[in-house]
Simulated assay, not measured.
Amino acid sequence: MSQGFITVAPTGAEVSKSDCPPLPVTIDELVAAATDCQAAGASIIHVHIRDDDATSTLDLQRLKDTVSALRESCDLVIQLSTGGAVTDAEPDRLAVLEAEPDMASCTMGSVNFGDDVFFNRWGFVRRLHQAMQDHGVVPEYEIFDLGHLSNLARLLEKDGLPHGGHVHVDFVLGVPGGASGDPATVADMTDAVNRYLPEGTTFSATGIGRTTMPVMLSSVAAGGHLRVGLEDTTSYRRGERAESNAQLVRRAADVLRIAGREVATPADTRRLLSIA
């Protein structure tokens, strides 16, 4: 039976606590969400942090404290966001790696992000990739549009394989300004992975908002993995707010099982992604 792993993205940088009361914004809330999500079937936690006012931050000491608290409380693979908010400066984004996560995100190009621009110039992408190699951090390459996959192929050709040698990408679909969150887009991206990237490359996919279920089902059908969480959608179904991140993880685990796939444990996922 093939395995599928689940990444939970519990917080993000955009959703407010007032609009989504279950959103974990303190370290204690994040730790509680992590333990609940691991019990529900998650293997990886994609971490954004907030300051005392619940505003997105890349404060390095807070990141270090968060990584330490998560390591003490759960076995999840800790993946820090190097994206932060769209306004964060490149030096602060690079400094995230000093918190010594297991993984970190590496976005493969710029993209319109609603009314804003998530800016990832080529020079910075290369610096971030090289810094992850130097720090021994495994990247998850974030793909917001089809061209980002050809960018990744060029990056690997110029700068070599990531730490651990395994390439893993995440399709982030349905962002206003990025690729659509529908089965055809998942199929196009899966085909591009097979054509452009090294044999054995794995992928996960997340659908933003109302695209959550089409992307989830398409990724599972294509042999991919899943990302869910309140960062990506605050609804469970039309007209019904999500109760928690764990509720979204449980649904993803149910989808994997219905498809005849085993829900991977954190240890399984570490082996698959070559995380020491």
Rank of each mutant, 00 (worst) to 15 (best):
G83S: 03
G83R: 06
T87I: 13
D88I: 00
E90Q: 04
L94V: 02
A95R: 13
A95E: 14
A95H: 04
V96A: 03
A99K: 06
A99T: 05
A104C: 12
C106F: 14
M108G: 03
M108Y: 11
G109N: 10
S110Q: 12
F113H: 14
D116P: 07
D116C: 10
F118P: 00
F118H: 10
F119A: 14
R121E: 15
W122A: 15
F124Q: 03
F124M: 05
R126G: 09
R126W: 10
R126Y: 08
Q130T: 15
M132T: 04
Q133C: 07
V137E: 02
V138C: 13
V138L: 01
E140W: 12
I143V: 13
I143R: 03
I143M: 05
F144N: 05
L146P: 00
L146A: 15
G147Q: 02
L149Y: 10
L152D: 05
L152K: 07
A153P: 06
L156Y: 07
E157R: 15
D159L: 04
H163I: 09
G164L: 10
H168P: 00
H168Q: 09
L173W: 06
V175W: 07
G181H: 02
P183T: 06
A184H: 12
A184V: 14
T185S: 14
T185M: 13
M189T: 00
D191H: 13
A192T: 07
N194R: 15
L197R: 02
L197S: 05
G200A: 08
F203L: 07
S204D: 11
S204G: 14
A205M: 06
T206Y: 00
G207I: 02
G207D: 03
G207R: 01
I208E: 01
